[in-house]
């Protein structure tokens, strides 16, 4: 079997302008990070709202949260991505549709589709964590807050959520790591994230092993360091007297 090892491949010219292959990996990583962070922002905001909804006594409100979670957790991520990328833009009203398809750069419109997909997908998971976090708090907390004359909004805002978030740091960390890994589906719709750049490098240079090894190393190092960082943070913000929820 003829395979030409060449670990110097990353420093060779791509033949397009002045770039070397390492540049591709760096821009790819940039996209991956941007996708994960933007998706995470949506997931946290929406997930928190939905999580709160699910803990409310009003049946109709908590049903909304439940329906959302059921829908978004039972459809594969890739199908959701296809919906956001291939289907939704075709049903946007004019002139937004034309603007989205032609006014925006293709990588931006693709980015928006992937961020929407990742954000809404992960929101269902964040929602469940927030709900579990709130429900793990002693009942007395709500009663005490209400007895102090706080309205429900203030009870959540000042009493329940701050504590819930602190105890769900571990599961939220793994959700964040998941969104980071899941962002690689962007490569399947032609967005040049880290995985797509890896595949392209492998294809241009025929040095598959080297390209995939570097990508693996990048993902691995980033994930491990994030995990260690979050463990440290978890210790710092631990609520005395409350055990944190096991997040795996």
């Amino acid at each position: 079997m003829n395979y030409h090892w060449d670990w110097g491949i990353f420093f060779k010219s791509t033949g397009i302008g002045q770039e070397i292959y390492l540049h591709w990996f760096i821009t790819g990583l940039g996209w991956t990070v941007a996708l994960s962070l933007s998706g995470w922002l949506i997931a946290m905001l929406l997930g928190t709202v939905l999580g709160v909804l699910r803990t409310l006594p009003q049946r109709s409100l908590s049903a909304i949260g439940t329906a959302y979670v059921n829908l978004f957790r039972n459809v594969p991520l890739l199908v959701q991505l296809f919906v956001w990328y291939f289907i939704v833009p075709d049903y946007l009203p004019e002139p937004i549709q034309t603007w989205f398809k032609q006014g925006l750069k293709p990588e931006i419109s693709g980015f928006i589709s992937v961020v929407a997909c990742l954000g809404l997908f992960t929101a269902a998971r964040v929602c469940e964590q927030v709900r579990t976090g709130i429900q793990a708090l002693p009942r007395g907390q709500i009663n005490a807050a209400l007895a102090l004359g706080l309205n429900p909004w203030k009870t959540y805002r000042h009493v329940l959520l701050p504590q819930a978030f602190r105890i769900i740091i571990p599961p939220l960390t793994s959700e964040f790591l998941n969104i980071f890994k899941n962002s690689s589906v962007a490569s399947l719709i032609g967005l040049m994230d880290l995985l797509a750049q890896t595949k392209q490098t492998a294809e241009f240079t025929a040095n598959l092993f080297e390209a995939f090894t570097l990508a693996t190393l990048i993902y691995f190092t980033l994930n491990m360091s994030l995990m260690l960082m979050m463990r440290w943070l978890e210790k710092r913000v631990k609520v005395p007297g409350l055990i944190s929820l096991g997040g795996k």
Partner: peptide
């Protein structure tokens, strides 16, 4: 647990 499944699938396919 720290690398994407998609990466594993693609890389195994070739390797």
């Amino acid at each position: 647990r720290s690398i994407p499944l998609l990466l594993v699938i693609t890389w195994f396919y070739f390797i």
